[in-house]
Amino acid sequence: MRADAARNLTAVLHAGARLLAEDPGTSLAAIAAAAGVDRTTVHRRFASREALLSGVFQAKLDSTERVLDEARLTEAPVPVALHRYLEGIIPVSREWPLDTRRMMQKDPQARARRQEQGARLDAFLRRAIEEGHLRADTDPAWARAVLDRLVDNAAHHFPDLSPPRAADLIARTLLHGLGSP
């Protein structure tokens, strides 16, 4: 792909993510205008709003995959891996603000990919419990729900909070709010 075409695609995906998160009915023409490209540029790549949504979700899943890989959830010490994950996932949540649940209902491949990513995070939280970083009686599903909510709040309700600072706050809240005394 040519450099200008790659830039245009990135601009369209980011504009689509932002505008569709605000209003799911946003037109492709409005997304093209926000991306600074011609409407035909968007239509050449995406035949419909659903196709664009799929592209946005794939980009979000790709970014999440990189964060999970770089966090080294199975190798790094739990507090280090948690902080790496948080520092990476907060910018991803901000960059791709669309809720993936919508896509999970329509795209079996995206759903399977998201479930695999979720399983990696669930295994990490079970490891945190087994190693004593979270109380032994902590329900892993509850820990996951709390973690997801903390990330969402930091990413979207505290936009001026830097990712490293947000990671510090979330890790402290998770590990000491649920952690061993």
Score class of each variant (00 low, 15 high):
Glu116Ala: 14
Asp160Met: 11
Leu134Tyr: 03
Trp142Arg: 02
Leu125Val: 04
Thr138Ala: 08
Leu150Arg: 07
Phe158Trp: 15
Ile129Lys: 07
Arg149Lys: 04
Ala112Lys: 07
Asp122Tyr: 15
Gln115Leu: 12
Asp139Tyr: 10
Val151Tyr: 01
Ala112Gln: 12
Asp148Glu: 13
Leu147Asp: 02
Asp160Glu: 14
Gly132Cys: 06
Ala136Trp: 00
Arg135Ile: 08
Glu131Gln: 13
Pro159His: 11
Leu134Ile: 07
His157Thr: 02
Ala112Val: 03
Ala141Cys: 11
Phe124Thr: 02
His133Trp: 15
Gly118Pro: 11
Pro140Ser: 08
Ile129Phe: 13
Asp148Ala: 10
Asp148Met: 07
Gln117Ser: 08
Asp122Thr: 09
Phe124Asn: 00
Trp142Gly: 02
Leu161Phe: 04
Pro140Arg: 08
Glu130Leu: 08
Glu116Asp: 05
Ala119Asn: 14
Ala154Arg: 08
Gly132Lys: 04
Gly118Tyr: 14
Gly118Ala: 08
Asn153Thr: 13
Leu134Val: 07
Pro140Ala: 09
His156Gln: 04
Asp152Cys: 09
Asn153Arg: 12
Phe158Gln: 08
Arg149Thr: 11
Glu131Met: 07
Phe124Tyr: 01
Asp139Ala: 10
Phe124Arg: 00
Glu130Trp: 11
Phe124Gly: 01
Pro159Asn: 06
Arg113Phe: 06
Leu161Pro: 00
Glu131Ala: 11
Ala136Thr: 05
Arg120Ile: 03
Ala136Gly: 00
Glu116Ser: 11
Arg149Tyr: 07
His133Lys: 03
His157Ser: 02
Ala155Gln: 05
Ala154Cys: 14
Glu130Cys: 04
Pro159Gly: 06
Arg144Met: 12
Leu125Tyr: 03
His157Pro: 01
Arg144Cys: 08
Leu150Gly: 10
His157Gly: 01
Arg126Trp: 01
Gly132Trp: 05
Gly132Thr: 07
His157Glu: 01
Ala155Phe: 10
Leu147Ile: 10
Asn153Ile: 12
Phe158Lys: 04
Asp122Pro: 01
Ala154His: 14
Asn153Leu: 13
Arg111Asp: 09
Arg111Phe: 15
Ala128Thr: 07
Ala155Trp: 05
Phe124Asp: 00
His133Thr: 06
Leu134Ser: 03
Asp160Arg: 15
Arg144Ser: 12
Asp139Asn: 13
Ala112Ser: 11
Arg127His: 13
Ala119Arg: 14
Arg120Ser: 11
Thr138Ser: 09
Pro140Gly: 10
Ala145Met: 15
Leu121Ser: 10
Gln117Met: 06
Arg120Thr: 04
Asp137Leu: 07
Leu134Lys: 02
Asp152Gly: 13
Glu130Ala: 14
Ala112Pro: 03
Arg135Cys: 08
Arg113Trp: 15
Ala128Asn: 04
Arg127Ser: 13
Thr138Arg: 01
Arg135Leu: 09
Ala145Phe: 15
Pro140Gln: 08
Leu150Pro: 10
Val146Met: 11
Val151Glu: 00
His157Trp: 03
Gly118Thr: 08
Ala145Pro: 07
Leu161Cys: 04
Asn153Ala: 12
Ala155Asp: 05
Asp160Thr: 12
Leu147Glu: 03
Leu125Trp: 01
Asp139Gln: 06
Glu130Arg: 12
Arg144Glu: 14
Leu161Lys: 00
Trp142Glu: 01
